[in-house]
Amino acid sequence: MDKNQSIAAFGALSQETRLDVIRLLIRAGTEGMAAGEIGDHLGVRQNTMSANLSVLAHAGLIKFVREGRSIRYFADFDGIKGLLTFLLRDCCGGRADLCQPLLDEIACGC
């Protein structure tokens, strides 16, 4: 992920509902959630949720698959990893060994 993509991702995450959505989808893991389920779980109207999901997808933080008339959303773990990698690329003055405990803690086997 480059600087401009990271700015878009942080912009997407800077709104409360979108932050709640990404955290919810991370918890949902590889099963993801239907758009209606996300809205119901967070108490957000369908049209508002649709706009928020669009912003997150455009920022590369979520992905989706159409299932008939429904759309299932998933956390885009590659996009999230790209954002974290961008942030930590030069951590600790190039001494990656100093950052290893942090990297181990946030590593996901998803």
Rank of each mutant, 00 (worst) to 15 (best):
L87Y: 03
R45A: 07
F64M: 07
G43Q: 08
A96L: 09
A9D: 06
F74D: 08
G109Y: 12
G32H: 11
A9C: 07
S6Y: 08
Q5S: 12
C92H: 07
I106K: 05
R27T: 14
G68R: 08
E67Q: 03
Q100H: 03
R66D: 14
K63R: 15
G43F: 12
C108G: 08
L84G: 14
S14R: 07
R27N: 13
I71A: 14
A28W: 02
L24P: 09
L88F: 14
V44N: 02
S6V: 08
A51L: 02
G79K: 01
R18I: 01
G79N: 03
A51N: 03
N47Y: 03
G29A: 15
V65C: 09
S70F: 10
Q5K: 12
F64V: 07
A75P: 12
R89N: 09
A75W: 11
N47K: 13
I62R: 07
K81S: 15
A107L: 07
A35L: 10
R95W: 06
S6R: 10
A8V: 04
T30M: 07
Q15R: 13
A9K: 06
Q100C: 06
M49Y: 06
A96I: 07
Y73F: 15
C108R: 07
D20T: 10
L102E: 05
D40Y: 05
R72V: 15
F64W: 09
C91W: 13
T17W: 03
L88H: 10
G39D: 02
P101K: 03
A34W: 03
G39T: 04
L84I: 10
R72Q: 13
V55W: 00
M1T: 05
L25D: 03
A107K: 12
I62Y: 04
H58R: 12
G68W: 02
S14Y: 01
D40M: 05
N52W: 00
R18M: 09
F10V: 12
G43M: 13
D90F: 09
M1D: 01
G60F: 00
G39F: 08
A59R: 04
L19N: 11
C110T: 11
A9I: 09
L53C: 11
K63E: 11
G32S: 10
A8I: 11
I7N: 09
G82W: 00
N4S: 06
S70P: 00
G11F: 05
L13F: 09
L42D: 10
Q5E: 14
R23H: 15
L24H: 12
V65S: 15
D40V: 01
G43C: 11
C110G: 14
L13Q: 12
I80S: 08
A51I: 09
V65A: 15
L87D: 02
L42H: 12
G11D: 08
V55F: 05
K3I: 02
F86K: 02
D2T: 02
R95P: 00
Q100E: 13
R69E: 01
Q46M: 08
S14P: 00
E37H: 07
N52M: 04
G29C: 10
S50N: 06
E67A: 04
I26T: 06
V44S: 01
L88V: 03
L13W: 13
R72H: 11
H58F: 02
L88Y: 00
G60Y: 01
T85P: 00
A35D: 11
R72L: 03
I80E: 08
D76P: 12
S54P: 00
R27I: 09
L98S: 10
L88P: 01
A12E: 13
E37T: 05
A8Q: 13
